[in-house]
Amino acid sequence: MSQTLKVTLHNRLSELERVGEVVESFGETHRLPPKVVHAVTLCVDEVVTNIIGYAYADQADHRITLRLSLQADELAAEVEDDGKPFNPLDAPEPDLSLPLEERPIGGLGVHFVRKLMDGVEYRREQGKNLLVMKKHVSA
């Protein structure tokens, strides 16, 4: 049974459904708690959504690589793209206490990553963005 799953995604929003399927099937294979599967699905979705929306200046087809791996009780989700340099961890924390009228419309995706993952690391390597998110899998 392989402990690592690698999937190549296109920069199209219809791929988000596939992200859900891939994480779910990885979760089933390794009997991960549904809460963990959902948290990882959501965070990978948010990161990939940002990449598709903002990383590319052209309209061309790009590949985004998703790697899921399990080591002991830690799941790592790595997302790699060849878009412009972007460290999502640089984004400011949204103010969640603002009333409806003043709530900004963006910034929540990165907030989810910060809240739901146990560790997040960003690296720029060989012209690519690499974001590694880690989540403890104990129920």
């Binding site: 859900g20 959501l42 979705d45 409806l100 709530r103 419309i105 963006g106 929540l108 995706g109």
Partner: peptide, 15 residues
């Protein structure tokens, strides 16, 4: 399933 993109639409409509 809902992501922040879904929340964004709800917020827009509520505003």
């Amino acid at each position: 399933y809902i992501s922040s993109a879904g929340l964004r639409v709800l917020l827009m409509a509520a505003k």
